[in-house]
Design a binder for these strands. Structure first.
Lengths: 245, 245
DNA sequence: CGAGCCGTTGAGGGGATTCAAGCTCAGTGG
DNA sequence: CCACTGAGCTTGAATCCCCTCAACGGCTCG
């Protein structure tokens, strides 16, 4: 799984300037820079180049500090993430025109590993190219993108956390997140059993059984309707135990 | 489940101007406008107001055309989505400082239904307020946000599509998406059975059994390694059948 | 040709669902 | 005050779907 980029040449085999490539780009309408006029494109194209990836090649690794984002010209890309217990989970697929790795704009590490499913061609866009375009790039914009990134990260984590593993592990992970949402020592909001089921892909009966079981285990103590106090230490211990089977 | 906003008053019970409220906002650092200086805040605050929601009250409905986005000051909000077969699925939770409904900036309908879990206080921000701030708001930025929104929408759909229902239904939904990714009539890229499992929360044996079964049903025809041709009509028929139990 | 990976299929067990019966508790009205 | 109600929760028993463990076939590649 090495990180090799395959040089691309035009169909005729004769190298073309990237400017011409961009102007003629068949996915230009679908892609990020579709909004730009030719003049803007002119200022930009020299910083952009193409790269190809063979199936199962990684475009970037999770955690790598990204200075590049990508527009997917052709092929299919998958995003993988490893859960804490160590098993991989595919959290999303992307097709032509998709923006790959926009967290680069936030000067942030990639949140997933992006891997080619089919042969893939991307346009590589250095972070700076986009930044330059947003002439007066307000901090507000940065904040906005950060929030969007956080939401997307959330959604991916939701996939890995709440749809995998035993029902017990899922409930425990949900409790941990609920505890994090309700700050420090306060009683946590507890969903109805039915809502727990909706979050975890379980029936309300199963949710109920598990809450009762955790109550007997001393992890959790009901505190009126939709409220609970939970023993953070035992929760984490139970989580570790559940996660290693 | 009516859409009622509860007027909020300051702790002392005396109304304060929103400007003071914003400047003193305890979540200001966490929230979207934390990046703004006081002067920018001054230009803004009169357009922002607070609203409170009781548990189980909807902040907005999926599909409503949103002209407002929200910053979550306190409480927990859940995002719900209904799958095609009609059952609801919670796809995300948000806590203080989260940005709720940023698709409003794209002049687009809300992708989920946002519902208060606990008592909730939000700042309501009209779309125009943010637009005005991004003085020279380039179309590129709009494109960026659109892509981000699409990715987030994807992630939420991934939750509802691929982690719910019988294994057969999940596989069928995956095939439909794969068909959509590989345009019109071309053979579709088929993941390995193990990758299918990683996407759908199944084992590779189960994935294999189901692919074989669908092959026998004439939905799918293998076409070399990692490629398949599929009968779109039968696929949709099988999907409908699997979705209504 | 053997090694290794991917895919297929079988048998058996287990965990979550389904169906069903009570329980608790708050609200209502006699 | 207390039965009456209904919604949310709990628990039991039986079922079924998916997982686990296992063997084997096809294919590619050294």
């Amino acid at each position: 799984m090495l990180m090799r980029t395959v040089p691309i040449r035009s169909p005729q085999g004769t190298p073309r300037t990237q400017g011409a490539v961009c102007a003629a780009c068949p996915v230009r309408r679908d892609a990020l820079f579709g909004a730009l006029d030719d003049e803007a494109l002119e200022r930009l194209h020299w910083r952009i180049d193409e790269a190809g990836f063979a199936p199962d090649e990684a475009i970037y690794q999770r955690g790598a500090s990204g200075a590049t984002l990508y527009t997917l010209r052709s092929g299919i890309v998958r995003f993988e993430r490893v859960t804490e217990r160590g098993d991989r989970r595919i959290v999303r697929l992307a097709g032509r025109g998709a923006l790959i790795g926009p967290e680069a704009l936030l000067n942030r590490a990639y949140a997933d590993e992006a891997i080619a499913c089919t042969p893939v061609v991307v346009c590589r866009i250095p972070r700076g190219a986009v930044e330059d375009l947003a002439e007066r790039r307000s901090r507000l914009n940065h904040e906005l993108m950060a929030r969007w990134h956080a939401a997307l990260d959330d959604a991916a984590n939701w996939n890995t956390d709440f749809s995998a593993g035993s029902s017990r592990a899922r409930v425990l992970r949900l409790l941990r997140r609920l505890a994090d949402l309700s700050g420090d020592g306060e009683p946590v909001w507890l969903p109805t059993r039915e809502q727990m089921g909706m979050m975890l892909g379980l029936t309300m009966e199963t949710s109920s059984r598990l809450v009762s079981q955790l109550r007997r285990d001393g992890v959790l103590e009901l505190d009126g309707a939709r409220r609970a106090r939970l023993d953070s230490g035992r929760l984490d211990a139970a989580l570790r135990a559940a996660d290693l089977d």
